[in-house]
């Protein structure tokens, strides 16, 4: 496991991430904050998440592999321990809650579908995604 992401690392990338999110969602940057939830607060759709990722990849010259969050959150759990037919197990949900520590705990619902996980993402989730990708690229 790599070292925990620090507040300073998140804050360093935040302005450019917030800008990318605002542009992708055609919103005023003032409407975006670190803890805005992309879907619930900023009314993103799934295609907007793709747009945000494309913009971040270009802005930071990084690669954000699809499905990386789920893979990282699963860690050393086997797929069967993590999910059952696309539904998160109790252990899987606990792992995800740890991994997405920036998401308020009451947003996680038991028997959540893996496909719905992106609806939890906040702007900080995207910042952490960028930091991890930059670390992976050795930047």
């Amino acid at each position: 496991m790599s070292a925990a992401i620090t507040r300073a690392e998140v804050e360093a990338v935040y302005p450019r991430v917030a800008n990318a999110v605002a542009q992708a969602l055609a919103r005023d940057p003032a409407e975006v904050s670190l803890n805005s939830r992309l879907f619930a607060d900023l009314e993103a759709e799934s295609i907007d998440l793709l747009d945000i990722v494309f913009r971040l990849e270009r802005e930071f010259k990084i690669q954000i592999p699809r499905g990386r969050i789920i893979e990282d959150a699963r860690g050393d759990l086997s797929e069967a321990e993590f999910e059952n037919n696309g539904v998160l197990t109790a252990a899987g949900l606990a792992r995800l809650r740890d991994y997405l520590s920036e998401v308020p705990a009451d947003n996680f619902r038991p028997r959540m579908n893996i496909a719905d996980v992106p609806t939890l993402f906040t702007v900080e989730t995207m910042c952490k995604m960028v930091v991890r990708a930059m670390r992976a690229a050795g930047a």
Partner: peptide
């Protein structure tokens, strides 16, 4: 498609 999506 990614290029078209970002340009709407």
């Amino acid at each position: 498609v990614p290029h078209m999506i970002t340009r709407r």
